[in-house]
Amino acid sequence: MNYNNILIEKENGIALITINRPEKLNALNKATIEELHHGFGSLEKDAEVKVIVVTGSGEKAFVAGADISEFANFSVEKGTVLAAQGQEMLFDFVENLDKPVIAAVNGFALGGGLELAMACHFRVASDNAKMGLPETSLGVIPGYGGTQRLPQLIGKGRAMEMIMTAGMVTAEDAYRAGLVNHVVAQAELIEFTKGIAQRIMKNSGVAISKAIQSINANFKDGVNGFETEIKAFGECFGTEDFKEGTTAFLEKRKAVFPGK
């Protein structure tokens, strides 16, 4: 697939997806969501890729929100479909990828941009980043999972205030609230995030995939996360990664995981 709105670079097991609509502050329109879906899906199938990092082009914005011009005149029915399709195609899709996805938040992450960052497995922010869900100032609510993921990350009370006031928080505020894991200078953002990716890559990709599934299970209605963990734990014993990991430990050497 030829991409018009995203860039993909791959190096040493790390894939970097850059949302590339600088003239729109990387706002998410339908075409960009479709390209991201395809990009993430292709990287998940790529055996050479172990970790995915997603960021925005330029220094101003990760993603400044959804492209409001696309849905300003939507009906109730169209609005409902917009949210349902977007969640399925991108936000839930990213959250449930088998490979780790890290958001490198450079600049503004607003509305759908923050929702995309929250769908990633964790977040690193540049020190100039600002985050918020301003939808109520437009007469609507977050529709790409924001009302669900924000309380999971920072707690109900803080999430209520952020959504009701439509306000933004700084990178430091986001760090203190648990919304992001690290805050670094913008010039260091990508290399710092890749450094975390390299640490992840030293471990078993199969085990990491099982861990993602088990952690996510705790936040799904009707799913017993403990049972999911037990099943995934048992399945690890049948993998080549488990045999290599335990053998390497007993032989007092570093494991070289085959990813199987």
Rank of each mutant, 00 (worst) to 15 (best):
M1D: 05
N2G: 13
N4M: 11
K10R: 14
K10N: 10
N12S: 15
I14D: 03
A15F: 06
A15K: 04
R21Y: 02
L25F: 10
L25E: 10
A27P: 09
L28V: 04
N29S: 03
K30L: 14
K30N: 11
T32R: 08
I33D: 01
E34C: 02
H38M: 07
G39E: 01
G41Q: 05
G41D: 11
S42F: 07
S42C: 00
K45S: 08
D46E: 08
E48Y: 06
V49A: 09
K50Q: 06
V51W: 01
V53L: 14
G56C: 10
G58A: 00
A61W: 05
A64P: 02
D67A: 14
I68W: 14
I68T: 11
E70D: 14
E70I: 01
F71P: 04
A72H: 15
S75W: 03
V76M: 13
T80K: 15
T80P: 00
V81G: 03
A84I: 08
A84Y: 12
Q85D: 09
Q85W: 07
Q87W: 14
E88V: 10
L90D: 12
F91N: 07
D92P: 06
F93P: 09
V94F: 00
E95K: 13
E95R: 08
P100E: 03
I102Q: 02
F108S: 07
G112H: 09
G112R: 06
L114N: 01
L116Y: 05
A117E: 11
A117S: 09
M118F: 05
M118R: 07
F122R: 05
V124I: 15
A125E: 00
N128W: 07
N128P: 03
A129G: 08
K130M: 12
G132Q: 00
L133S: 11
L133A: 09
P134M: 11
E135V: 06
T136E: 05
T136Q: 05
S137D: 02
L138W: 09
Q148P: 03
L150T: 00
P151H: 04
P151M: 06
Q152K: 12
G155N: 01
K156T: 13
R158A: 02
A159C: 01
M160H: 10
E161I: 04
T165D: 04
A166V: 01
G167A: 02
M168Y: 07
T170H: 00
A171P: 00
A171N: 00
A171F: 00
Y175S: 01
N181E: 15
H182D: 07
A185N: 09
A185R: 11
L189E: 06
E191R: 12
E191G: 07
F192N: 02
F192E: 03
T193L: 08
I196S: 11
Q198L: 13
M201K: 05
K202I: 03
K202R: 14
N203P: 07
S204A: 04
S204T: 03
V206N: 08
V206L: 06
A207L: 15
S209P: 06
K220E: 15
K220H: 15
D221M: 07
D221L: 02
G222H: 08
G222N: 02
N224H: 04
G225P: 09
F226I: 07
T228N: 08
T228F: 01
I230D: 09
G234E: 04
F237E: 11
K243D: 13
E244V: 15
E244T: 15
G245Q: 09
T246G: 08
T247Q: 15
A248M: 04
L250N: 03
R253A: 03
F257T: 13
P258H: 12
